[in-house]
Amino acid sequence: MNTDFLSVTLYLLEGFGATVKIFLITLLIAIPLGLLICFGSMSKFQPLRWLMRTLVWIIRGTPLMLQLIIVFYGPGLLGWTAFSVEMATYITFSVNYACYFSEIYRGGIENVPRGQYEACQVLGMSKKDTFFRVILMQVVRKIVAPMSNEIITLVKDTSLARIIGYYEIIFFGQKYIKLEGILWPLFYTGAFYLIFSGLLTVLLRKAEKKMSYYNV
């Protein structure tokens, strides 16, 4: 293995690609899935509400690392076909973050004044139009800040996938310890996280600002 700065950077960048892949797939699934879980947890149909709230309680009440291990090793123990490392990672992260998102969504939705729904009703708007044309935008505005926090946390949480053998950037960094006996590439991985989360912070701030064109 080449241990000059450029080679290490390029090699770690490859590992960081895998990290970003977890990040993007998780967001892509968790953002809509969270909305479904949120609707479920607010449903008038009690068994569904109970089921969703229990799911959220379990997922939020246990460590993500443990969840990864259970999803990866659990099916095999029961004699079922196991998921691949990638599948287990994407499933666990998506469901985990969807649960957190669902609670943020729920807070946002419950925060919209009842008068907004009532104004829509007396103007003869359908339930669907009420949600998508009036409520959703107000919810989005209320949740950008807490969602930003979760999204930044996700950047760092991706490193947990290493526990079931997902080749992400930390894994790549550790290779240098094993094969070359040098530590600095592992430390250096921190810079990748910093730059990525820094970029995200700027982007999310911008989104937040863009949505503050009105006061409530």
């Binding site: 004044p113 008068g115 907004q116 009532e118 104004a119 829509c120 103007l123 003869g124 708007m125 359908s126 139009d129 044309r133 009036v134 935008m137 107000q138 505005r141 009105y214 006061n215 409530v216």
Partner: peptide, 21 residues
């Protein structure tokens, strides 16, 4: 409490429901 839609300007507050209907 008026219950205007805060994210829409005055004109859009007036037209939203009619445009949908």
């Amino acid at each position: 409490q008026f219950n205007l839609f805060p994210q829409y300007n005055v004109l859009d507050n007036l037209t939203l429901a009619v445009k949908l209907k």
